[in-house]
């Protein structure tokens, strides 16, 4: 199991793709689906690689994503 998880609020996303580009382990990709504003939000393509580092959360200008570590 992965060390961390990433949570996405798809409706708040404006599709800038900062999180997709700068996730160090390439957990994310832009989805082909639209949200109700017409943007393509990211989705998780490699959940097992997420370290929960929250870099995606720091980059996201729309406060639409964050990562965290699982409590063990």
């Amino acid at each position: 199991m992965s060390k961390g998880f990433v949570a996405i609020n798809v409706e708040r996303c404006k599709g800038c793709a900062f999180c997709v580009e700068f996730c160090p382990t390439h957990v994310l990709a832009l989805s082909s689906a639209f949200n109700s504003k017409g943007y393509h939000p990211p989705h998780v393509v490699a959940s097992d690689k997420c370290s929960g580092c929250d870099l995606c959360g720091m980059y996201c200008p729309d406060f639409a994503i964050y990562g965290a570590r699982y409590a063990r």
Partner: peptide, 21 residues
């Protein structure tokens, strides 16, 4: 579609929240 977390691939522990909120 209302605001919701649609992520299914990750298991999101209850009570977690975006630290900026």
């Amino acid at each position: 579609m209302s605001e919701q977390l649609l992520e299914v691939e990750c298991e999101i522990p209850e009570g977690s929240f975006n630290p900026v909120e």
